[in-house]
Amino acid sequence: MPGIFITRGMTVAVPSGGLTIGIGDDGNFTSKVTLHVRFDVCPTWTEISLRHLQEAKAKRVDRDIAWSGTDEEQKAATLEREFEASMQAIMAAAIAIDAFYSLVQTNVALPSSLVERWRTKRTPRYSQVAEVLRQAFSLRSKGVSTLRQNLKVIYRLRDLAVHPSGKIEAPLLHPELNVGVEWRFAYFCAHNAEQIFNAATWILWDLAHGGKPNDRKISEYMIALRNRLAEMFPDGHPNVSSAMYLRKP
């Protein structure tokens, strides 16, 4: 390999046995270095979620304008565009949390009995994530309760997008339009996308600024994550320390 391209968000490490130093047949020193790299996609998915959220909010304005008129095709088109952008914002926010969890998990020594219990009881993803973060940052009970509630909502909407039902079901009342719609249009709207984005990024922001990691590698990572989040939230993050409840149809 002629070389390695290093970019922002990439961690470079020398694996065990990756550095060798010796003396050649000619009496000169020889050396060889093997590098391993990892690109952090948590900030990437956070930025993707933010872009889709901004689009969803713009499409909500278009939808409000269309629904004040009588053009049925325009009403449908704007509702669909808001739905599409909102669903992508929610999905990206959930993936950002998953990426963060995966990195933290590698530095948390979970008891094998706990991992086996999760597997046999099919423990929900949000519960596993909450427990790993609790151990990694020594979170208090009240904070864990709020974290679990918000993660539960985030993963619920993620699952609705990833595992969509093919059944024909009764329409739901759209909370803003006061008209019955297919359930996806009620759940995947700009309002809920903003709630999910704020809750997901608050978890990252709060742990990056106030968390107390038990592991050196996690501490080093949180410094880098804090810097990336500062670029996305130059004025700080809106406080979402209470449990999140979506606007239900």
Rank of each mutant, 00 (worst) to 15 (best):
I196C: 01
L139W: 06
K142C: 05
I6V: 15
L246F: 04
P234W: 00
L177N: 03
V153P: 03
T30M: 05
V14P: 09
A56M: 04
N198H: 08
W205T: 06
L173F: 04
D215A: 11
W202A: 01
A58L: 15
K75Q: 14
E72H: 12
M244K: 10
T70W: 15
V129C: 05
A85I: 01
R228C: 07
N150A: 00
P164S: 01
L114W: 12
V115M: 11
V181T: 02
A170M: 09
M87E: 15
V61K: 09
E72I: 11
G143V: 06
A224K: 11
T34L: 10
V33N: 04
T146E: 12
L139C: 05
A208K: 04
H209W: 08
C189H: 04
E182F: 07
I203A: 04
A58E: 03
P238G: 07
R140D: 11
R134A: 08
A89F: 00
V108S: 06
V61A: 09
D62R: 11
S165W: 00
P234E: 01
Q54N: 10
T7D: 13
D206L: 06
E82L: 05
V104S: 00
E220C: 07
C42V: 10
F233P: 05
G236E: 05
R125C: 08
E169L: 14
V104Y: 02
W118V: 03
F39Y: 12
T11E: 14
Q149I: 09
R60C: 03
I168H: 09
E72D: 11
K212Q: 11
T146I: 06
G27S: 01
I23T: 14
K248Y: 14
E182Y: 02
L157T: 06
I223M: 08
E194K: 13
K32Y: 13
P213A: 13
K217V: 15
D62S: 13
I203C: 00
K75S: 08
A96W: 04
W67S: 13
L157P: 01
R38P: 09
R119T: 15
H163Y: 03
Q128G: 11
F197L: 00
E82W: 07
L110F: 02
F39I: 09
A92E: 00
V179W: 02
D25C: 07
N198A: 10
T20F: 01
D62H: 10
N178L: 10
E73R: 15
V115Y: 03
A161G: 03
T7S: 12
M232Y: 06
V12H: 00
W45H: 14
N150H: 06
K121N: 08
L35Q: 03
V162K: 08
L177F: 02
R134D: 08
P2N: 13
R122H: 12
T34F: 09
A170W: 05
